[in-house]
Design a protein around this nucleic acid. Structure first.
Lengths: 177, 177
DNA sequence: CCGAGCATGTAACACGTTACATGATTGC
DNA sequence: GCAATCATGTAACGTGTTACATGCTCGG
């Protein structure tokens, strides 16, 4: 495996919006990309250090008061565009819920019903949250065409959550029959 | 992290259907659970060795002719049911395609359209494959009620693929506007 | 006899999380 | 003053993949 710079991509992407501290990068990623991406500090700080060493970001140290602010260099921005151009190998699927349901015969119908109900509830929550986000973004698109890209990622979540709800319902009906 | 025995679960599950070699376990997982699970040899063989040491599986060595066959012991089966009972922590989401699209403004609309078209094509393929599987399983359910559980996992894939197709279409329309 | 597929395993590596350690700043 | 949050980092660990090494068997 010739190295898959997904964390690097996420970090550079976050910094492309505006310069910020490592801590803020993490907050930004959990907040804004939260429904389809995640990073931990243990990844972010080493990555930032490496990016700094490679000249893709610079650190504006503000004395010793608060932490430093990382800013994308022109090289860094170019690198980001490069990375966005490369296709990302899809990660092998690993869905623990489906794995359990597949062997549902050993577990019993009641337990499976429970699993499905939980899945449905989680999906419904997601759906509500993302639907709200979707409306916000749809309003934003009028003034900022680039908001469409953010809207697209939210739409993916909406469709996926909706599918999960109808799947759970259909499956529950199947087990009830 | 108190250890997440997902591989163990998958291996025990595969062996619960019928005894087989490690090689066959891998083939079974890629074939039958392929659309929502994956394991590599590097995981399977060490796991089998450990399970054997713990007395959860036994190895029926057939001389030196072909490889050995692994069989679930009663303890192993009990352990499988145990594992199926435990809730599985959902893995943090990491969707590379959405990550790229989120920063689509830097990449350009044409490239994003290309990404969406590819996603759509992949989803359509999946949909065709799983729809066929679905029909097979629906026929099977009449004679074997336990086939419902396998059907449920296929339905999940069908719904998810369908959602992916409509999402891609909607997003393409958004970028065309 | 030779190549394809069956079969088993190991070693190196990549990736990611959790837990820990440490300290500054800010609002109550 | 104290708690919460901002901020930076490291170390240990778990988990998973890829690549390599090795040998058998069976059909053509």
């Amino acid at each position: 495996m010739s190295r898959q710079p997904t964390t690097e991509l996420a970090v550079l992407g976050a910094l492309s919006v505006e310069p910020m501290s490592g801590y803020a990068v993490r907050a930004d990623i959990t907040g804004t990309l939260g429904h389809f991406w995640s990073e931990s500090f243990g990844q972010i700080y080493p990555t930032l250090a490496r990016l700094e060493a490679e000249g893709l970001v610079v650190r504006d140290a503000e004395g010793k008061t608060s932490g430093s602010t990382f800013r994308l260099t022109p090289t860094g921005r170019a690198r980001l565009v490069d990375l966005l151009g490369d296709p990302i190998a899809p990660s092998p699927p690993r869905n623990g819920t489906l794995l359990r349901l597949f062997f549902g015969g050993l577990l019993g119908a009641d337990a499976c019903v429970e699993i499905l109900r939980e899945s449905r509830a989680r999906a419904e929550e997601q759906l509500a949250m993302l639907s709200a986000l979707r409306m916000e973004l749809e309003a934003e698109v009028a003034s900022d065409p680039d908001a469409r890209y953010r809207l697209i990622t939210v739409l993916a979540g909406v469709h996926s959550a909706r599918a999960a709800v109808t799947w759970a319902d259909e499956s529950l009906a199947l087990l009830a029959a």
